[in-house]
Design a protein around this nucleic acid. Structure first.
Lengths: 185, 185
DNA sequence: CCTTACATACCAACCGGTCTGTTTGCTATT
DNA sequence: AATAGCAAACAGACCGGTTGGTATGTAAGG
């Protein structure tokens, strides 16, 4: 793999796990086994530009992944439950959440850096659009679909945070169980 | 006010707004107009001990505030909607979220520091207990009340994050609107 | 031969934390 | 009541380590 992609991949993982400020450039460099020359060659504006590249890459990855899941399951409920299960499995095997979440970056950077905020916003919008589209095909009105998509996004994102503090997958499992309620519209 | 309380108050605000790593001790010191001597006198273990003190103080403040709201409103729905409105007003006037949230600390520190994780967990548990208690008095079964309390917590916490990225209060407003759905059990 | 893709050395700024004063207020003794 | 003593409550200088970032060097490829 080329150096640039490698750096984005490794940095994404580190940022997701530890947040932005907690990860030093030297740490990223070490993980990729490259030096500063490489970083500032590919990302002239340094760390923050790398973060934004990570968010864009993450957006693509999540979109592809979710769209595939939502294509393969007939109902929103089944698809979402499958997705949450994937999150849970991920959390159980790796110990840390490295899948769809990037909440640390949001809460740490959204109020500080405008470009980062926009990248995060774009990511959330994409996720909600996937829910929305599926819900509309199921007969939901535009408004109802939009509302439910938001509720799904927030409750899953919130559940991920609770899983971190509780060090258990219970919150995500409960949300998965409550999906029928959420999807009542 | 005594120095220690002042430091907790100012630091809490800064930690909520910027996260943990992003706030330097010197920044806190400047905000309080004190010096390092004062900090390491009251908090011998430094910055992290101060953070934990902030979380404990925040827990008390939130508990008192929420219990008061839930005492003054007959139904869970009314109480929660009032609470969300308060969050929205807070967000609109101050521009930043300084009320109930501390998501930045969770996602940044939960996987790094065990004492901090426990403090955050204790805070979330308190919030859920307040919901739970009220729901049980309304006739919910123990399990249903527990589930709904979780869903309320996660969706509000998630909505706060979306408000930050969108720079709007729309997500919280939508969650407030969807409360009847959430409370169907 | 000149651009791309790095490596390496270097830097000022800042980080959290420690150490050593110094002031202040209470308290026990005379 | 005066004073001695002593601990609490800071202030401020200082420290090694790390931070993100830059400037220069260099090897490879077209």
């Amino acid at each position: 793999m080329d150096t640039k992609s490698l750096m984005i991949e490794k940095a994404t993982l580190l940022f997701q796990q530890k947040g932005y400020k907690s990860v030093g450039v030297s740490e990223i460099l070490k993980a990729c086994d490259v030096t500063k020359g490489a970083l500032y060659h590919h990302f002239p504006n340094g760390k923050e530009e790398l973060l934004i590249a990570c968010l864009k890459s993450l957006k693509e990855a999540i979109t592809i992944d979710m769209e595939d899941i939502f294509k393969r399951h007939s109902s929103t409920q089944e698809a979402t439950q499958f997705m949450i299960n994937k999150l849970i499995r991920n959390l159980e095997t790796e110990g840390k959440l490295t899948g769809y979440t990037f909440s640390s970056i949001v809460s740490e950077m959204a109020t500080v850096s405008e470009p980062v905020r926009q990248a995060c916003n774009s990511l959330y919008e994409n996720i909600q659009t996937i829910y929305y589209t599926k819900l509309v095909t199921e007969g939901f009105s535009n408004e109802a679909a939009s509302d439910v998509a938001l509720l799904m996004t927030t409750s899953i994102e919130g559940a991920i945070m609770l899983c971190q503090t509780q060090q258990s997958t219970a919150p995500l499992k409960t949300i998965s169980k409550l999906l029928p309620t959420i999807l009542k519209g």
